[in-house]
Simulated scan of single mutants.
Amino acid sequence: MKWNIRPIELELKFDWKISRNTSTKKTNYVIEVEEGDFKAKGEVAPNIRYGEDGEKILQEFTQFLKEKPQKFDSIEELTKFLKSLDISYSLKFGIEAAFVDYISQISDLTKYRLLGTNSVTQIKTSFSIPIMETEKLADFINEYKLERFDELKIKIDKSSVEAVQVILGNYPGKLRLDANEAFENADEVLAFLAQIDCERISFLEQPLKADNHDEALSLKEKSPVMIFADESLTHHEVSQYYAERFHGVNIKLMKAGSYFQALKQMRRAKELGLKTMIGCMVESSLGISQTFPICQGADYLDLDGCLLIKNDPFNLVTEEKGRLFFSHLH
């Protein structure tokens, strides 16, 4: 069994500006596992917010190659081994995804069967708008024909009140706001929300820094819209801590590091009465397609990562009227 890693350079359709940085391209990595006539793949989408970058991913993959056994006999064996490694969670998922793909190929069993989840052939996603000059927003919505999406996700910072108002005036659906930790305290968030039509806001994602525990408690109690955790929830267990501070959680495979951990997070969130969203990083259609097996039962899906890039090397997913399909089925 041969393992390999290679970079893929993803060019973005537009400047991807969020509250903490701006990108025009993204370097992800493809994990390949090969044996005989079988060749399987998984995607790694490192995120600097979690201390991940390309150099670290490559170093950690070398560590994986040195420490792994000669062969893994089951998905469970691989997953147990990955838990013992101190490597980036996006890399853990890329390795696991490639191996699940491999086992699916050699066993002729679907990934849904292997993971014990319900089959999904299409999903409804939101589409994300980055932070940009307010005067460009109406043209952006028209250029990309965004009315075909039931909901839009808007990247915001403290100064985005006018931008949200412009989008509400040029788009008929509901908005999901994503602050990426832009606000300092609950009062700042509440003052922002007081200036917009909250009836058309589905939720506000991660307005406060992940370590701002006390302010998150206060905000949940007073907020006129649901507050979702993103950066606050990585690979950890979903506990009462989250139920006390948030109305919902954004679960991502690249943060959870494993299909099984992400599914466990979703089950526990539901037990605690939290809403659930399956999200993504900027990923090719390889990474997005490998998210389909955990989508059933989520309250919201935000899987537009491959729609933001203009040179998808895999073309595994097709979008039509705001829905994603496997390209070979469409």
Rank of each mutant, 00 (worst) to 15 (best):
154 I>W: 08
138 A>I: 10
160 S>C: 11
270 K>V: 08
317 V>L: 11
20 R>K: 11
150 D>S: 10
320 E>I: 08
92 K>Y: 10
93 F>K: 12
283 E>L: 14
100 V>H: 13
25 K>P: 00
117 T>E: 03
244 E>P: 09
212 N>R: 13
63 Q>V: 14
260 F>L: 14
323 R>L: 03
145 K>E: 07
268 R>W: 04
172 P>Q: 12
92 K>T: 03
188 E>V: 08
75 I>H: 11
80 K>Y: 07
113 R>M: 06
304 D>G: 06
143 E>S: 14
262 A>G: 04
267 R>V: 04
326 F>L: 10
153 K>H: 04
172 P>K: 15
273 G>N: 02
195 Q>V: 13
293 P>V: 09
215 E>R: 12
27 T>P: 01
62 T>D: 11
70 Q>H: 02
92 K>R: 15
292 F>R: 10
81 F>P: 04
101 D>T: 11
254 M>T: 02
322 G>T: 03
206 Q>S: 00
84 S>V: 00
86 D>G: 02
32 E>F: 07
320 E>P: 01
70 Q>G: 08
56 K>V: 12
312 D>L: 14
175 L>W: 03
56 K>T: 09
135 E>G: 02
70 Q>D: 10
1 M>G: 06
10 L>P: 08
155 K>Y: 07
150 D>T: 04
302 D>S: 01
319 E>C: 14
238 V>R: 09
287 G>W: 09
64 F>H: 05
328 H>M: 04
126 S>W: 05
185 N>V: 02
135 E>H: 14
198 C>Y: 06
172 P>R: 12
120 V>Q: 02
234 T>C: 06
68 K>R: 14
207 P>G: 05
